[in-house]
Design a protein around this nucleic acid. Structure first.
Length: 350
DNA sequence: AATTTGTGCAACCGCGCGCAC
DNA sequence: CGTGCGCGCGGTTGCACAAAT
């Protein structure tokens, strides 16, 4: 037996709301409130609408102080950062933007921000490819002096990164020297396994993460997942450095994305659930941390028990504190994760 | 000018959660 | 403890309008 419908579908009106209906609903709620029962509300008012429909109309349109359209750069910034951090938790994101509804933000993301992000990322990617293909046009010396992404570092790009990433991954000598993981294959395996939230020690067990890889809509061989993650590690380390020197500014909503392969950004934009699975340990402090007390040989939580749905209560407060901390210019929590991750991989923060 | 295609957005749908009984 | 119900959320749909052909 299916679930009982919330209202008599045959006798409720659907589709756009008329001004009269809006007026009825608005004046009633302004005078009497919702009464804590949306289902009963339409009968009280004499509206032939489903209670859920009334709730939606009120929350997304009739409620006072609602803003529509005209998203500012700062709002874009907040939405992008929160989306990357927590995924499609529109209600949580909306809670950080006064006057905005989750529906509005969701629509805005799907129709504009997503494309803006991808467009920007593709541009950066093409520019970088051009630079790599035409090195004589660049001031190579300056580049070498000022950045860890130097020619020396590029020569250290592991073969598995170079094979799948269109842009060389900036892996420094120091990273590998301190990692204790000079064996590229073992490092690669560990990174791929970490993405699945499981650490395995042999190839047979490693097969278990194959479903995740298959589930990726874009071609994402394990090698590519690893290379993109290496980019993230390096990016976050840079962000950390800015934080520590007290100059951190959340100035660029696309910060970090320009270093990533297009497929990665597409995965972020088109398939947040996959991102949730793969990146939740990175962006949500304390959620999915490995239990390293036993040498990292087991994970403390199963994939199921750490699904997004189970974590909502955990997500919120760290998220808010991260956001508040970020607003105040103090170190965002992502840096804590970066630090833990660098520690885990035996790398030094840049 | 007519038609097709793309875009933005309001609204709907179904599911999971929490609470009351 | 199990069940039913309402709420809230996120994904999806469908329509109106704009832009392109």
């Amino acid at each position: 037996m299916g679930r009982a419908p919330c209202c008599d579908k045959a006798n409720v009106k659907k589709g756009p709301w008329s001004p009269e209906e809006d007026a009825k609903l608005k004046s009633y709620i302004e005078q009497h409130g919702t009464g804590g029962n949306w289902i009963a509300l339409p009968q009280k008012i004499g509206l032939k609408r489903c209670g859920k429909s009334c709730r939606l109309r009120w929350l997304n349109y009739l409620r006072p102080n609602i803003k529509h359209g005209g998203f500012s750069e700062e709002e874009d910034n907040i939405i992008c950062r929160l989306y990357v951090s927590i995924g499609s938790r529109w209600s949580i994101i909306a809670a950080q933007l006064p006057g905005r509804t989750d529906n509005d933000i969701k629509n805005y993301w799907n129709t504009r921000l997503k494309k803006k992000l991808l467009g920007k990322q593709r541009k950066e990617q093409q520019a970088q490819i051009r630079r790599v293909n035409n090195p004589q046009k660049q001031d190579v010396k300056k580049e070498t002096e000022n950045s860890v992404v130097a020619s020396e570092a590029i020569t250290q790009v592991p073969y598995w990164c170079a094979a799948y990433s269109s842009v060389p991954v900036p892996v420094t000598n120091a990273s590998f020297q301190h990692s204790g993981l000079n064996n590229q294959t073992s490092l690669r395996n560990m990174m791929v396994n970490k993405l699945e939230g499981v650490i395995f020690s042999n190839d047979n067990q490693q097969q278990q993460h194959q479903p995740y890889i298959n589930a990726c809509e874009v071609p994402s061989p394990p090698d590519q997942i690893f290379s993109t993650t290496m980019n993230m590690v390096n990016h976050v380390a840079v962000v950390s450095d800015e934080s520590n020197s007290g100059t951190y500014q959340p100035s660029n909503i696309f910060q970090g994305f320009e270093e990533l392969p297009i497929e990665f950004c597409e995965l972020v934009c088109m398939n947040p659930q996959q991102m949730d699975r793969s990146m939740k340990g990175r962006f949500n402090y304390g959620m999915e941390s490995m239990d390293m007390s036993n040498g990292g040989s087991t994970n403390t939580t199963s994939t199921e028990s750490t699904s997004w749905g189970d974590m909502s209560s955990l997500v919120y407060s760290p998220l808010v504190s991260e956001y508040e901390g970020w607003q105040q210019g103090i170190i965002p929590q992502v840096d804590v994760v970066a630090f833990e991750e660098c520690k885990y991989f035996g790398m030094q923060m840049q």
